[in-house]
Structure formats: structure tokens, C-alpha cells
Amino acid sequence: MCTGRVDPALVAKAFKKGIDGLMVVGCYFGDCHYITGNHQAKAKMDMTRKLFKFIGLNEDRLAFRQCSSGEASVFVELVSEFDQKILDIGPLGGDGDTVKAPEIFKKLEAAEAVLAGEKIRWIIGKRTPFLETGNMYGEVFTEHEFNRAIDMIIVEEMEVQEILARLKETARSVKDLANDLTIPPARVFRYISALKRKGMVALDTVAGQTPIFQIARQEV
């Protein structure tokens, strides 16, 4: 099994369950036992770190490092260094993170849904083709552009998952959601209408003049 097997959703799950730090150690680039698996792992962990940073978790809690199986001393160094770093940052949801416990666990729950979700997995899976062989129209993207797209998708997907998480609890109006999540109502409305189109959210009732939305019972 390769570091490429490390599923970002599992990483989020591990943090949700309460670990304070996680280090993925893979082969050096060009020296991977599984040829290119470490490149995939690096891309996935980089993306996960971005997401963690966005949700207010200290992104240094997740590290991707490289050493070869023959480099015991390097491995020891990496582990000791990371251990010390996590000790410095302190327990999850404490002083080291911008969002504190127990709020952070709610965020991690949404993060796990994002990382297990379709969109971000699709785009990170498309990374190599996008950067190397180009898309269907033969357009090759630069890393810079790709990272920008990832940044945007992280924001969108997190907000969408948080909306869905809130709606799972109870049906709500756009205004309520906007207040709960401190996202501008206009944006919440756009998410809701997009989710409606995707068949993930449905209208529950109309209370007075305010439509109340609920999670769609049957996802298409």
C-alpha cells in the first residue's frame, strides 16, 4: 500500500476522532515504489492542509514528509521534529487553532463530508491530467491556476456542507442559515438554489413569506 492510498476523508475522520497531529511519510519523488503514488499523496495532503487552514485548524497538524526506507536517521529526525511541533501546538481545539473545541469538531465533520464529496475528489483526481496532458479542450493549466481553483472550491464546498449539516438538523430559512453560519444571505440563497437544482435540497413549507428549506429525502 502506498501513501497514495491515504484518503483525505480518512485524515479528517482521524482528526474528528481526536488525534492532534498526523504525518504522512512517503518516498522521495522519482523514487516511489509505486511510481507516482507519492505525487498523488502530496497533492491530496496539500489540499487537505488548505482546507484545514480554512476551517480554522492549525494546518501544521497535518504534514507530508519524505524519506527513503534506508534513512533511519532522517525518519527519526522527521518524527521527533513533528512530535515537538504538535507538543508546541497543543491539544486539538486549544490555543494552537483559531477555532476552538467543540466548534472545531463540527467543522471537521463538515470537512470530512467535503473530502468524501464528489467535487473536491474529482478536481484533485484531475490534477495530473490538468497539469500535464490538459483537459478535453487541450488546455493545460498552471499549478497557480489549479491551486486557485482548489481554494475557491474549498470555500464553496465547506459552506455548502455546513448548510447541509444545518439542514439535516432541522429545516431552516435562508435568513436563519445566513445568521448561523455568518455567510451573506445572498450567497446562502445561491447555494440553496444550486442545491435545489442538484436535487439535494427541497422546499419544506412557506412560513408567511419566507420559504423554509429542508434536506431532500431522496438524493438523485
Partner: peptide, 30 residues
């Protein structure tokens, strides 16, 4: 070769790796 890149990428979670399935890894984690 069982590297598992596909399973970690599949957005439909349709692929899995024998003896390294998501729930086996999760069980170890727990």
C-alpha cells in the same frame, strides 16, 4: 499492485483495496 491511489481518489467510493478497505483502516484508527 495494490497501491490504492484509485480508491483514495474515486469520488463515488466505488473502488476499494482488498485487505486495506476504508472500514479496515478506520477500525485500526479507532
Amino acid at each position: 499492485k495494490g497501491c490504492g491511489v484509485c480508491a483514495a481518489t474515486c469520488y463515488q467510493h466505488a473502488l476499494s483495496i482488498n485487505s486495506f478497505t476504508d472500514n479496515q483502516i478506520e477500525a485500526q484508527l479507532e
